[in-house]
Structures are given as structure tokens and as C-alpha cells.
Design a protein around this nucleic acid. Structure first.
Lengths: 153, 153
DNA sequence: AGCCAGTTTACAATCATTCTAAACAAGCCT
DNA sequence: AGGCTTGTTTAGAATGATTGTAAACTGGCT
């Protein structure tokens, strides 16, 4: 079976070499198992994209690896807890995991069910509420819901 | 700070009378059936709160009415489509329906799983992105995720 | 009164996600 | 290296919110 990792070798940035990923997983307190390394190689290569548990499973299968469904969920949750991924909730059907953990926001199109990043600083929150007693602000999620442009007007 | 909408008076005059609700349902293009009126009486009295399909079912049962589970979901979706409710997604386990359809945002505490409104204009978006081609902005959801206050810092 | 589209209902089905408990592998210890 | 311990993975079952289905019902018209 041919792992298709070579494909990103022409990329400018560090393609995830095994040592690097192993190290990152260790830093996150996660044992670098075959399964976690396979998923990390797909998701933590520095590119920003959105995957579902399902789409990731398909990619893994395509790459020739074999990872159980439950493990995919486990690893996605572990990566998210470790801050390697961000969970984005736009529907209550399923979750999307965002490989971009930097602070940014999303467009969501209900009709096509597509999620896209809102570029750069195109959303500016000029005012934030004070956190209630006993709590502090962990993160702020902005989801801009889109609708097809109405032709008439 | 009286950001209250006028219908929320402190007297029971805020109670929706049947005729009013019947009319509102008709305006929304919905036949005023016993089930829809029962749910409307609970949710459309001008108070702002968040319910789940489940919590609403419990309230209905307590009030002595009987409404099938599927109908509760149907009606919640119909009310939401008609703009009488707003659907808020904070987890992907279930949906919350917000009786406050005015533009406002939410605090969410993952540990206690509680959703609260962010008062008034405490969130100000000073900059919004342009909608992508063929789309227009339908709504903007801001969810401020909270965490228990850390003692340090 | 009677009709009919719109509604409701019970129940099954769906589907993402989590649980279970049994098999397995990583890393440490000697 | 062998063995141990604990963290991981696994298949399959379970969960739980939500939706589909097909039959029964009802609101509101004529």
C-alpha cells in the first residue's frame, strides 16, 4: 500500500515529517500511535480546511490506512481538546473540525451546507460583554449565515 | 436599562389571549390548531427564554395538554421558519429555540451547558465582511464561550 | 352536513456520536 | 530482550435528538 504523503513535498512549508508530528503529539500529551499519526499527517500539515468525521474517514481510507470510526471521533476530540483543531458548530447534525485554530470566523450557507472562513480581520468586534460572575471568556464564535441573493428587490 | 420590548409588561396583560395567538398564527400562514395554540401560548407570550424540544414537551405535559413528540418538532420548525422563534446552535447534541427573535447574541457555558442572552448592545460588530458572490448576509450569530474563572492571573 | 387539504399521531427509521469491554500496542523497568 | 502496565484501538451495540411514514383526524370552507 502506497501512502500518498509524497504529494505535498513540493509545498513550501514543512510537510509534516514523522518526527515533527510525533513531537507535537507528545507535547499535547498524546501517545503517537499509528492512528493518531495518520490523522495528524492529514490534518496538521499547516493547511487550513474543514473536515467532518466522515470526510476524514474517507480520506484515511483513500490513503490506505485503516482507522476505526470510534477512533476517528476520539482523535478529533483529543486534538480539539489539545487545541490542535477547533470545533465549529453550524448545524446540529454533525460537527465540523477546523484545522485553523487561529482566531477567525465563518460564513455558513445553509442551502449548500458549505462553511468558509471569513478572511482576516473582516469581522471586528468593537465591544464585548463582561463575562458573568465566576466565568471568563474562552472564545468568541461568529457565524455569518448566508442566503442566496434575492434577485428581485 | 429598558431594552424590553413593549409587550413585556409586568402584569398579566402580557398573557396572550387566544384571539391574538390565532391571529398571529394565521399571519404566519399556519392553521391555528389546538397543538399550535398550546405551544404558542407557552412560547409567544413575549417573555424571552430558551427551550429545547424536550423541555417544551415537559411543559406541555405539565399544562395538561397532549401533543405528540413529532408535532412539537414540527411546530418548533414551523415557528422558526415563520420568524416567531430563532434557532440557536451551541452544541451538536440538540437545538435550543430562542423566543427572542430580535438581533442579539449568547453566552454559552460548556460546563453547565447553559445558554444566556448577552444583554442589549454589549456586542458590537464594527466590521462585517462582504457576502460572497451570489449570497447575502442572512444573520450573524455570535456565541461567546465561557469557562470557569481560573483562580490565577 | 360534507368534503379535503393541512395536521397530527404513533412508530419506525436515520444518523452522528458515544459507550463497552475485549484485544492490542507503547513505553518503561529490570 | 521479556514482561508489565496503562493508554489505545476496535467492532459492534447503544444512545439520543431529530425526521420520515402512512394512517387517522380536524379546521374551516361550501
Amino acid at each position: 500500500m502506497q501512502l500518498n504523503i509524497s504529494q505535498n513535498s513540493h509545498q513550501k512549508t514543512a510537510l509534516p515529517d514523522a518526527g515533527d508530528l510525533t513531537h507535537r503529539l507528545r507535547l499535547a500529551g498524546l501517545r503517537p500511535t499509528r492512528q493518531r499519526l495518520a490523522i495528524a499527517a492529514l490534518l496538521l500539515d499547516g493547511r487550513h480546511r474543514h473536515v467532518t468525521a466522515d470526510s476524514l474517514a474517507a480520506e484515511i481510507a483513500e490513503s490506505g490506512e485503516r482507522v476505526a470510526g470510534a477512533t476517528i471521533y476520539n482523535v478529533l476530540n483529543q486534538f480539539t481538546a489539545a487545541g490542535l483543531l477547533r470545533r465549529v458548530m453550524v448545524r446540529n447534525d454533525y460537527s465540523l473540525f477546523d484545522t485553523n485554530t487561529a482566531h477567525h470566523h465563518h460564513f455558513y450557507r445553509p442551502d449548500t451546507d458549505q462553511l468558509t472562513d471569513i478572511p482576516g480581520d473582516d469581522v471586528v468586534l468593537s465591544r464585548l460583554p463582561a463575562a458573568p460572575d465566576g466565568a471568563e471568556i474562552a472564545s468568541v464564535d461568529v457565524v455569518v449565515h448566508l442566503s442566496p441573493k434575492s434577485t428581485s428587490r
